[in-house]
Structure formats: structure tokens, C-alpha cells
């Protein structure tokens, strides 16, 4: 377990880490996620980090990393406060991210992800039964 230390790197590096800086709130949180066909999946409602926990000392052996993006109800605690239990998280793992630029590109089709169940439910239960729901507009 490695304790807190003075910065090990040149101070300027923390402002510009090899040109690879990425500020999560500015560039990741609340960004649109698209699937390979550019179909919107959701916005990034929260980000799951590994390597740091509330209520414990930080182990500086390894830096914390982003492991997953949360969607769905995860936006509610950000607006109203409170915590959502882990079992309710709708997660999209970071390993599915192809590219993070002005939108986040995910490698899985929107329909194939557990996290997008609500869209499918409304589609199957409400929209598709209405005549014309499955047809392209003309």
C-alpha cells in the first residue's frame, strides 16, 4: 500500500500529460453515446471508477481507472442527490468504447445491450402495436 507523496512528475505534466489529458466532467459525463450505426444509445449518466473507494485511504500503487459508463436511472442521484445501489446500475463497460471524441462510440449495437432495455420495452409494448409503427415515414 503506497501512501500519498509529493508529485512525482514535473508539475507542468499535470496540466498537459503528454497531450493525452482528458477531463471527465467536461468530455465524458453527459456525452451522447452512439452505437456502430450511429443510433443514440443514451447519454453518459455517470462513470464507474475502480481503485478508489469512499471511506478508505488511497492506495497509490496503481492509479484509479474508468471501468464502466452508467446509463439510465443513474442520472437521478446526480440531480436529486442520494445513492443508487450497485445492483441497479445499468453499465456499459469501458472496454466497449471505440472512440471518445465529441460523442462516445460504442462497439455494440444499441439493441444488443442490457442497458437499453427501456427503449426496447416501449418499442415492443407501446409503439409497435400502433399501426404504421414499424414503417419508415413517407
Amino acid at each position: 500500500m503506497k501512501r500519498a507523496t509529493r508529485p512525482q512528475r514535473p508539475l507542468e505534466w499535470y496540466r498537459d500529460p503528454d497531450g493525452r489529458g482528458f477531463d471527465a466532467r467536461l468530455e465524458l459525463l453527459d456525452r451522447q453515446m452512439l452505437d456502430p450505426d450511429d443510433v443514440p444509445i443514451s447519454t453518459v449518466d455517470d462513470v464507474e471508477l475502480a481503485g478508489v473507494e469512499i471511506g478508505s485511504a488511497v492506495d497509490h500503487d496503481q492509479p484509479p481507472t474508468v471501468v464502466a459508463l452508467l446509463v439510465g436511472a443513474a442520472v437521478l442521484p446526480r440531480i436529486f442527490g442520494g445513492h443508487m445501489p450497485r445492483s441497479r446500475w445499468d453499465r456499459i463497460e469501458w472496454r466497449h468504447v471505440l472512440r471518445a471524441d465529441s460523442v462516445i462510440h460504442i462497439n455494440t449495437a444499441a439493441d444488443d445491450m442490457d442497458a437499453t432495455w427501456l427503449e426496447r420495452w416501449i418499442r415492443d409494448r407501446v409503439i409497435a402495436p400502433i399501426p404504421g409503427g414499424r414503417h419508415a415515414p413517407e
Binding site: Q32, S42, E119, R120, R123, V126, I127
Partner: peptide, 23 residues
């Protein structure tokens, strides 16, 4: 609504592909 929550939207899509938008 759809753009805020990141839902699929647009009239260029079939209603079935933008379910929450149409609902």
C-alpha cells in the same frame, strides 16, 4: 426530451426505432 436523455430520436427513423421519442 430525447436529446436531453440521449434517446434515439428523429423523424428519419421508423417510430419503432425511436420509441421513447414518439411516446
Amino acid at each position: 426530451l430525447a436529446q436531453f436523455f440521449g434517446w434515439s430520436w428523429g423523424k428519419f427513423r421508423k417510430p419503432a426505432q425511436a420509441a421513447r421519442f414518439h411516446l
